[in-house]
Design a protein around this nucleic acid. Sequence first.
RNA 1: UCCUCGAUAGCUCAAUCGGUAGAGCAACCGGCUGUUAACCGGUAGGUUGUAGGUUCGAGUCCUACUCGGGGAGCCA
Length: 463
Amino acid sequence: MTASLIKDLHARTEDFLNKEIQVNGWVRTVRPSRTFGFIELNDGTFFSSLQVVYDENLPNFQEVSRLVSGSAIRVAGVLVESPGTKQPFELKAESIAVEEHCEPDYPLQKKRHTFEYLRTIAHLRPRTNTFSAVFRIRSAAAYAIHKFFQERGFVHVHTPIVTGSDAEGAGQMFRVTTLDFDKIPRDEAKLVDFSRDFFGRETSLTVSGQLEAETYCMTFNKVYTFGPTFRAENSNTPRHAAEFWMIEPEIAFAGLAEDMALAEDMLKSVINYILKHAAEELRFLNSFVDKTLLERLENIGGSDFGHITYSEAVDILKDSGRKFEYPVEWGLDLQAEHERYLAENHFGRPVFVTDYPKDIKAFYMRMNNDGRTVAAMGLLVPGVGEIIGGSQREERLDCLEKRMDQLGLNKEEYWWYLDIRKYGGARHAGFGLGFERLLMYLTGMSNIRDVISFPRTPKNAGF
RNA sequence: UCCUCGAUAGCUCAAUCGGUAGAGCAACCGGCUGUUAACCGGUAGGUUGUAGGUUCGAGUCCUACUCGGGGAGCCA
């Protein structure tokens, strides 16, 4: 007999009820009595477990009653309606074969563990309710993002992980090398001779696929990337990881307004997909992790995101009457406390902030007509902070070159990026979405380390 | 990297003024005829994060380090 999936038992119960079936899975808990007992069985296909009822007619009744949580078993029996109130049906076992016993020092218990402890057993934590919910949602959200872009004609571009550009400008980079650290080759000036390294030049892990994505945007009109990104910043916060996944769409013949509309549509689409396809998981997270989660996600579909300019944000903060630790002054970047006030107190929903002063933003952002702000946007979200950063890109070659000169950037390093402006460059815009930050918003988890399977943070790459 | 708080049994925590280590859960043994964080009884389980120091005596006070939480910076 082929094994049935617990997911299907829930989806098409009538097809299985009162029939002989087999289910393979892992024991979550056993509750034995003298002549019978219950097993919570989880097969990984569905959030909820299946209750198995067994009794002393099993030849291996004693062995089954002593099963340690975590053991892998195969159960054959009849699916029947359950007299208990916590589950609609249960499996009346006719035989239980032990696939593999679990050692008694199994670290997971039937009670609550702290997330901090579970991080030390990252290889086992997906077996807990919370993490199985988080990682199933992660999978569904990734699919929902591809679905959203593919259905709108976006081309998925795989931009390189290893990059030769040392000036992508988004942060500290991890170096990629095969040089022997005990015998580093040096040139006449005693500098490291990267011409003898694997790629014949200095290389690093990417901090963004945006510049490469822009080039494909000028071919396919609408493109997106979805891949790993690496930042060697010594950031020790619940919102930063050294390795994370980023989604970066880029659209041609479009400006900042279209860019923001795209971001809003995408977020709403992903949220609606998750509400529909991960309902069990969201219900669980709503009761045990964040009591406001479902309400927040359900409300977002019907509400429009806020829109303010940076200048308006400064005015709102100044007029708020709030005492902030950091000063609010036009030209200074918004601090975390300011962003929180805007998203959580003033708007109470996601809000786009646009048109930042040029001096606090990247060189490639399009200069506005006022000459002192750029067409940039950030999406602030309650509880997480900045989840998206984007801009209309500077498509005018002379403006871009002038800006690079002002900032002292080496134009030769960017020759191919500048070429795009020479050869039929068009207006275009895009943004970067931190996938883990989106997941924090979707799950209510408050630490980025708990929404990525094996998190890499400063001093932590043990798995 | 800075500020701040913390580290005690496998896990979650307690230990009064500095006086010599305690509970629940897990494990193990036994009981229980519908449980669902099952329940009841028992057994075992400790170099109190590491290294120093003060003291007759340190889980408790001091110093350094390691790791972790929260806040900040950098950013997504």
